[in-house]
Design a protein around this nucleic acid. Sequence first.
DNA 1: GTGAAAGCGCTAACAT
DNA 2: ATGTTAGCGCTTTCAC
Lengths: 335, 335
Amino acid sequence: MATISDVARAAGVSPATVSRVLNGGRVSPERAERVRRVASELGFSPNRVARSLRTQQASVIGLLIPDIENPFFTALARGVEDASRRTHLSVVLCNTDEDVEKEARYLDVALAEQMAGVIVAAASPRRSDFSALDARGTPVVAVDRRPGAATVDAVMVDDQRGGDEATAHLLDRGYRRVACVTGPADTAASEERLAGHRAAMRAAGIPDAWIRAHTRHADLRVEGGRTAMAELLTLPEPPDAVLVTHDLLTVGALEALRTAGVEPPAFGVLSFGDVPWASLVRPPLTTVRLPSYDLGVAAATLLQERIAGSTGPRRTVTLRPDLHPRASTSGPTPG
Amino acid sequence: MATISDVARAAGVSPATVSRVLNGGRVSPERAERVRRVASELGFSPNRVARSLRTQQASVIGLLIPDIENPFFTALARGVEDASRRTHLSVVLCNTDEDVEKEARYLDVALAEQMAGVIVAAASPRRSDFSALDARGTPVVAVDRRPGAATVDAVMVDDQRGGDEATAHLLDRGYRRVACVTGPADTAASEERLAGHRAAMRAAGIPDAWIRAHTRHADLRVEGGRTAMAELLTLPEPPDAVLVTHDLLTVGALEALRTAGVEPPAFGVLSFGDVPWASLVRPPLTTVRLPSYDLGVAAATLLQERIAGSTGPRRTVTLRPDLHPRASTSGPTPG
DNA sequence: GTGAAAGCGCTAACAT
DNA sequence: ATGTTAGCGCTTTCAC
């Protein structure tokens, strides 16, 4: 690999001049031209490691996501990438696997590699720790999941509103006994979506006791959704519709419904997450689409501003999910 | 951020000693202990950028994949990560988006960041260019897609065999007129799977003209699969089964079949790729499962060996996909 | 406008 | 076993 000194020697100038040509300093046009020619002849590409060491900052940002196999996060990653494209920033992705240890390791890498900034969907609301980055002045933007203590910029989904709108939609279509299958009580998104569901139910005059009795917390796996749905169907006063707050749970819930011989839209089914196989399910599923891509774009934009030196107060951007009505919630009565 | 000199001063030793403590050189136990204590008190974490500059190699490997939203590649990424866990290597993911330009940019980043090695599913068999990495001695392992010219280690799927086994399975189950919907003619995987299909058909004594007439190349989108399948159904001698070589095409093909009132398993359907929604399709789909995770593990292992200094001849590891028979190919006649 | 020189934080000879 | 020294490739004063 050619270095800046090789180029300088070959072009008959000093290394400083080559550096200036590269970074836009004042150099006479003809020398600049000569340097550029020689550089390309030599296949020179500046060593970013050396540059980082000298300038104390890299042109790479880290994106830490908890599950690379989850389409929600991959779409988010695309958003981050697309928004970073125009700048000189490259995005590197790190899969934390919902594991605070792995996350800490990657945060350490980000620090040690002097990354320009980090966007992170925290593995744990309490135990994720960004203080080291903060101490060094590396900007951090939280996305999708707000870490409890840390005061960082954040981009969030308005999950509560999504849950509220979803259940309101079901009630509006004529369903009366709307159950809810949600994730574990310790995941924020699950709880907020449930809270929205509750709010809509209360607004419709349904007693708290009924709502509670027709709510199930399930493990975020297909099996969890199946079990929860099956339970709900055996209740003394079974539901006539269900809001499922995670698409994985929806797969299980649909299986349980099929097993019980219950069919949408007579039984209303509404799912969070716009699943790629939505078109394969009959009837097509009404969904609350999460703005995953836009979440990424917003986070990258916020981060770029901080990297550029913005020092304003911490900001939280909230994005609204949107409802996509389809046939699975067309109403309890035929026609 | 504390530096190695800060630690050295606070511990009353030389920077070299601190470095030796960190990297396992000979240091007396009590001094080593003192250094470690001081380091953790100061919250010291070594600056990898400086280390990279000095040692001329980083502890990061790059993984370049063409589509982060494709479950095949995300599973592969998990394999790479898991295999890299035990070593000191961190994996950073780069999404090339099937774009040779973006890929080149990331290869440049890998080079400029002095990455220890790169695993890449090439965006283009012809135009992907690893010569710069090669020139610098950075190991490269190709995965899933073999770049035409470059002589690099590679980990591949035996697509031809997969196609062969799939069609053989259909014939074995009693289907006679097996069609094939495959991807564009310029994608290697599509062609190899098709070649396997052809081989199995020929072995069963079916004339080339028939095979050719019942083969469709489709754009890798749902719509492409639908159109191709619809065409096949209108042929004078329509097929009684189909091998679809990409899961996205399968979604479309299933829609076309449903529209035409044709149902598996009377009509046999076999798909490449073990789709997550397989359980939702009735009847469950027989699939050729691609060893995506293992592909990642194998690639990471190969790369680690090269990073460790192995200089043997280029190797190509080939992994076999496996057939998962399910109800969609249980046979053309009831029972 | 240009070059000489210093130094970012670390490691690896080379001394001792 | 430990310290001293030099230098990885780059940028950035500081002179001129």
